[in-house]
C-alpha cells in the first residue's frame, strides 16, 4: 500500500493507424507527451481538456487498454510498463482500476440488471455467495436495488449509468476513472452520477478521476488537471485553476459560470475580486462589491 496510487513519468502515446502498421508516419503527432504526475490514494481529481486533447488516451493508459509508447506508469507502486508484465498482472491492474465510459448503452453486457452488475465479479472467479453479496451491496450503493430484475434497455440514461457504475463498484476497485460518464445524460442523471462519484470518494475512500467537459463538475474536485494537445499544462486545486480564466480560454476551455462572470465584470472595468468557485461564493463576491460601491 503506497501513498501515491498513480504515478506517471514522462508518459507519451502515439496512435498508429492499424491499417498501415508498417508505414512509420514521421509527422504523426503524439496524442500524449511528457505527462508526469502523481495522484494520491483517495484523491478526487478532475481532468479537463477540449476534444482530442488526449485526456481519454490518458485514462486508457492507466488501466492498460493502451500501452504507452514512451514513459512509465506506476499503479500502487507497481510498474505496469515493464517488459515482464504478464496477462495475469494486466488482470490485477484492471481489477484495481475501474472505468466508467460515456455511453451507458455500450457498456452494459447482460439483459438483466443483476447479471450485468455480476459480470465483473464473475470474471474475477469469486465464490457465488460473494458475488451475490457484492451485487446487492453495489446496487444499493447506487440506489438501484429495486431494479435488480429489470432489463437495462428499459431504464433511463442516468439509471443505466448507475447500473454501469454498480458493475464497477462490485469489483471493489481502488481507482475509478469516469471517462466523460456524464456527457450523455440529462441534468438530473448527471447530478445523480456526480453525487455517487463523490460519495464513493468520501465514504469508500476510492480514488476518483473524473474526465469531463463540465466545469461545474471539475470545480467540485479536490484537484484539477488540464491537458492540452497532449501535454499537461495545469495541475492545481480547483480554486487556483478557475481563477486563471484567461489561461483556460487560451486552451479552448471555459471557467465556471461564476468565475466567468467575475472576469467579465472586471474586464468591464469593475474593481471586483474575491472567490467565485461556487454559486454562493460568486453571489457573496458581487454583494461585497456592490456594498463597497455604495
Amino acid at each position: 500500500m503506497s501513498e501515491v496510487i498513480i504515478k506517471t513519468e514522462n508518459l507519451g502515446y502515439t496512435y498508429v493507424d492499424s491499417l498501415d502498421d508498417d508505414i512509420v508516419k514521421v509527422d504523426q503527432s503524439p496524442a500524449l507527451r511528457g505527462v508526469s504526475l502523481e495522484i494520491k490514494r483517495g484523491e478526487y481529481v478532475a481532468v479537463l481538456g477540449h476534444n482530442g486533447s488526449g485526456k481519454s488516451t490518458f485514462a486508457k493508459l492507466i488501466n492498460m487498454i493502451l500501452t504507452p509508447t514512451v514513459g512509465k506508469i506506476y499503479i500502487d507502486g507497481v510498474d505496469i510498463t515493464g517488459d515482464d508484465f504478464t496477462e495475469e498482472d494486466v488482470f490485477d491492474i484492471r481489477r484495481k482500476v475501474g472505468m466508467v465510459f460515456q455511453n451507458p448503452d455500450n457498456q452494459l453486457v447482460a439483459t438483466v440488471v443483476e447479471e450485468d452488475v455480476a459480470f465483473g465479479p464473475e470474471n474475477l472467479g469469486l465464490p457465488r455467495e460473494e458475488i451475490r453479496q457484492r451485487v446487492d451491496s453495489a446496487l444499493s450503493t447506487v440506489g438501484m436495488t429495486e431494479y435488480i430484475k429489470h432489463a437495462p434497455h428499459k431504464l433511463s440514461g442516468g439509471q443505466k449509468q448507475r447500473v454501469a457504475i454498480a458493475g464497477i463498484i462490485a469489483m471493489k476497485p481502488e481507482i475509478i476513472i469516469f471517462d466523460e460518464s456524464t456527457a450523455m445524460l440529462d441534468p438530473q442523471g448527471r447530478a445523480e452520477v456526480v453525487e455517487i462519484m463523490e460519495r464513493l470518494n468520501k465514504e469508500e475512500g476510492i480514488t476518483v478521476l473524473n474526465i469531463t467537459h463540465y466545469m461545474d463538475e471539475a470545480a467540485r474536485a479536490d484537484r484539477v488537471v488540464v491537458i492540452n494537445d497532449g501535454e499537461l499544462i495545469i495541475d492545481s486545486t480547483a480554486r487556483e485553476v478557475f481563477k486563471n480564466v484567461e489561461l483556460l480560454h487560451s486552451v479552448g476551455l471555459e471557467a465556471t459560470q461564476g468565475a466567468e462572470l467575475i472576469a467579465a465584470l472586471s474586464g468591464c472595468g469593475a474593481d471586483i475580486s474575491g472567490e467565485s468557485l461556487t454559486l454562493d461564493e460568486t453571489v457573496e463576491t458581487i454583494a461585497n462589491y456592490i456594498l463597497r460601491k455604495k
Binding site: 486508457k60 488501466n63 487498454i65 496477462e87 488482470f91 484492471r94 481489477r95 475501474g98 472505468m99 465510459f101 455500450n106 457498456q107 453486457v109 443483476e114 447479471e115 455480476a118 459480470f119 465483473g120 465479479p121 464473475e122 470474471n123 474475477l124 472467479g125 469469486l126 465464490p127 457465488r128 458475488i131 451475490r132 451485487v135 458493475g167 464497477i168 469489483m171
Partner: peptide, 17 residues
C-alpha cells in the same frame, strides 16, 4: 473495451452468478 475493463477474458476462471 468496456468488457476488457471489467476483466473479461473468456470463460477462464469465470463463475456464473
Amino acid at each position: 473495451t468496456a468488457m476488457e475493463c471489467r476483466c473479461y477474458r473468456g470463460d477462464k476462471n469465470r463463475v456464473k452468478l
